[in-house]
Design a protein around this nucleic acid. Sequence first.
DNA 1: GATGAATGAGTATTCATTCAT
DNA 2: TATGAATGAATACTCATTCAT
Lengths: 209, 209, 209, 209
Amino acid sequence: MPKTVREPQQERSIEKKNRIISAGYELFSELGYYNTNTAMIAKRAGVSTGIVYGYFRDKKDILREVTALYMTRIAIPVFDLFDNLSVPFQPHTFVKEIVELVLAAHKENAKIHQALHALTHTDEEINAQFIRLEDEITLKIAARLKETGILREDANEKVHFAMDILQSFAHEYVYDHHEYIDYDRLKKLVVTSLTALAGFRHDSADTSI
Amino acid sequence: MPKTVREPQQERSIEKKNRIISAGYELFSELGYYNTNTAMIAKRAGVSTGIVYGYFRDKKDILREVTALYMTRIAIPVFDLFDNLSVPFQPHTFVKEIVELVLAAHKENAKIHQALHALTHTDEEINAQFIRLEDEITLKIAARLKETGILREDANEKVHFAMDILQSFAHEYVYDHHEYIDYDRLKKLVVTSLTALAGFRHDSADTSI
Amino acid sequence: MPKTVREPQQERSIEKKNRIISAGYELFSELGYYNTNTAMIAKRAGVSTGIVYGYFRDKKDILREVTALYMTRIAIPVFDLFDNLSVPFQPHTFVKEIVELVLAAHKENAKIHQALHALTHTDEEINAQFIRLEDEITLKIAARLKETGILREDANEKVHFAMDILQSFAHEYVYDHHEYIDYDRLKKLVVTSLTALAGFRHDSADTSI
Amino acid sequence: MPKTVREPQQERSIEKKNRIISAGYELFSELGYYNTNTAMIAKRAGVSTGIVYGYFRDKKDILREVTALYMTRIAIPVFDLFDNLSVPFQPHTFVKEIVELVLAAHKENAKIHQALHALTHTDEEINAQFIRLEDEITLKIAARLKETGILREDANEKVHFAMDILQSFAHEYVYDHHEYIDYDRLKKLVVTSLTALAGFRHDSADTSI
DNA sequence: GATGAATGAGTATTCATTCAT
DNA sequence: TATGAATGAATACTCATTCAT
């Protein structure tokens, strides 16, 4: 008997499957993958423990789908932003816009991001999903920026680097751990660096952030 | 019943305790904390399961010491570098030196870093240890750079930001996940950004990296 | 993570829970609490080790329910006897009846009594359960005897003392340890003492016990 | 290699062995046998864990000796009392004296008594030791009382019964669990019953207890 | 004799997964 | 499909006992 999971066709079923994914999303966010058990997920989703295995092969399978959900939630607003990018554009203003967007996205998804990212160390599959997402975002954005003439050389590298910077800054900003850091000054440094990276000189007189 | 752990005085004991910490270090690196059990640690350390609890209160306690070990391994070379900082100095050269140092440190400790960092999401204590380390490094370096006149304004923020950049770059560089990225060009971007952050203009003719 | 135990509603479940309690009852009787492990209980009950924790919070919780079961087994026949007490009554005959009843109860429950009683020394909860049972029995009987006019002064003390006497006698009688004791003569002494305690003079010519 | 325990000859050794027994005595009293471990005993005795097994075959062996110590502590004052019994004697006064003696003994030894008695259920050897002690005391006292003409018929049974009564009363009195019991009135009931058992009529005008 | 570090079998408890209904 | 009771392997931790020094 090959191990199969039902691919739910009926609406009720699809909705139930989604409830389980949402419950997993929440619980993994709050407690992490290892501190969440399937009974908790079922309970939060309002379903029986047994039926979870009707929709998912195993606990890892829930994780896979939670990760996929997270991926789309992150990718969509970023793609939207760059898709609607119009030239000529104000580099500094644009960078600030992006920073705010990423901060907002991070605020909402910080915990699940951490929870999932924590697993990349030991879980090759999750790791691959993360890499694939980064690939997709980097390449799409780089293509768009080359297309619009904003970036020329080292586009992939610059975009990737910018993403790294943004990511770690967003993480820092959201958690606000260190009291000796003025996070708004830090934000300005980030904007300046990113603007510079794009090949523009930041007008230091601009203090509008 | 007060729970006590032997504080080993004799060399043999200290060595045994260290073997356990090393075993934990390795296994947490390879498999992560949750996929490592105490029997595995004991076996790898070449001791019985029982004696582990002679040296450590519980499994978490091993984690604590592994984390502490990691912390010192990371902190010491960084402090050394800045302690020996001599002025007048060549900003660009110095930045390159730092980048290489951090890359080297990361190469050796990347896996344990990930393993431990993964726990900051759910383990408040490990999280606090990480924050404390960041605090210590940031403040010491910032102080040193102000002392030497290299940095004036926003020293803490700049140092912290530089560390973030370095950290994520090092991580990327070591794992080398994305084939469309030229990691050496990326390295140059990093050096340029950091040099700029320090208030120096990077001589773009310099391609010596 | 709130720790919950199923409160079984369905008959099958109730029966299974009872099987576990019975298994605990037997094993605690035979081996004592500390020499019984949960695997043994599960095996004797014909269930898996896991499901035990579906019905009971922990091993102590099984003990609690075993104790409760014992309590009701002991209390019910005693209450029945005194509830059906009719006046005028034959004191000597009545005392003999009680003695036989207690002996019978003890014969059946002697081992579990010992096993549970053994825990009163270190387990405050079990100790409290025992005290509560004694309270209940003493007060109910004393009230009944005052109501019927059989006892007037020091009713609580007399009843309590009588219970102590009966308890230790029953224990002795059941185990029959000492060969130099004629347990039937001992029984007569007990009956005489109890009758005297009730304020009646035992007709020593009566050798009908 | 036959398993042997050193029979300590030197004073220092004997003293060390006694310290271990005392430590066991105290700890078994406080925590019970199962909640006391050998490391605790060694620590309390001020010796190493290893040497415990130089003096005792195993943990049970410590228990044996603790039990023996308890036995002598209990038996000696009782034997003294009856050895010094002079006739003609005042029955009522004598009974009161005994009651007080037993109460005093119980006050000091109540906890260890409970701890050891708890084990009679599962430990045949301790059980036998208890029975042997009861035998010895019962027979010695009965012999003495027959010798002095105080008891004639059913001497063993009467003495045994009296001991049971005293024992349970002492236990009750020391712990004083039930608030609805006036323990001093209870004590009077005990004295009256015991005096009656000895074949004397208690002078109810005597309220000197 | 004496130490206390070391052993490893034993135990309560959890939890992903299965299965009778 | 759906339920939730049932399974049993896995795991952290304890402790009587041994043994190298």
